[in-house]
Design a protein around this nucleic acid. Structure first.
Lengths: 118, 118
DNA sequence: CATTAATGTTATAAAAATATAACATGTCAA
DNA sequence: TTGACATGTTATATTTTTATAACATTAATG
């Protein structure tokens, strides 16, 4: 289970792979089409990145004749959201609320004067 | 900007670091306390992991005397949520809804008979 | 102030990720 | 069927990450 999250976060941890996800978000693309966009990279490198995404379950391959169509599967990201991001994002909101509460106290310091000058 | 997401996803891409985040989620801990929990790892290794988390902005260090208190800062994860996870999780929900629609069609095939037998 | 405890620093070995090259396979289309 | 095209496979160089060891620093405490 933790292996799955390892693979997912590692897959998301490279800008090229995130770029690929964005490229196939609105519909599948062939490897060739992806390479045409990612001109700065060797075709083999693009295929290796696709392989990493595939192992993480983020890309599903459909073969059509001699073409390889790379589809996005966003379901694993939903799992990441549920287990890791959601709870921590909520934690972040909690932190922000604490800061806001502190700001209000600063704005009306007379209320906390007793505590401040120890 | 993409560098930030690189650092964040890479920081989250190791189970030990995710474990550390869980350990300090409900309050800061000293490096020593973390090492007592992560007994299978060398202290230096734990410190390296903390350094990765710190560079990603997920851990903020407070020094008290000779102790180092590691605080969670979940705000960067909020950014990840907004830019990467939220939109893709929504995409996943969309995929699920498409699948459900297909299931309904399967359940009442007479409604789509015209399309099916071309 | 000397000792111990907690942490920091530098160096290094081992493993994994990244990028590329060279060659191989399968398939479309004239 | 043959040549070109899209992709696949294997090998390898480079870089980065992970894990440790050895030594250094800083602060509490008797």
């Amino acid at each position: 289970m933790e292996d799955k999250f390892d693979a997912l976060f590692k897959a998301l941890g490279h800008r090229v792979r995130r770029q690929i996800l964005d490229l196939i978000k609105d519909g599948p693309k062939t490897t060739g089409a992806l390479c045409e966009t990612l001109t700065e990279l060797d075709r083999c490198t693009v295929m290796q990145h696709l392989s990493v995404l595939e192992k993480a379950g983020l890309v599903v391959v459909e073969r059509r004749g001699r073409e390889r169509w790379n589809h996005l599967d966003a379901l694993p990201i939903h799992d990441v959201q549920k287990r890791w991001i959601g709870p921590y994002a909520a934690h972040a909101v909690g932190m922000l609320e604490e800061l806001e509460a502190l700001a209000k106290i600063d704005a009306s310091p007379q209320e906390t004067a007793e505590k401040s000058n120890a």
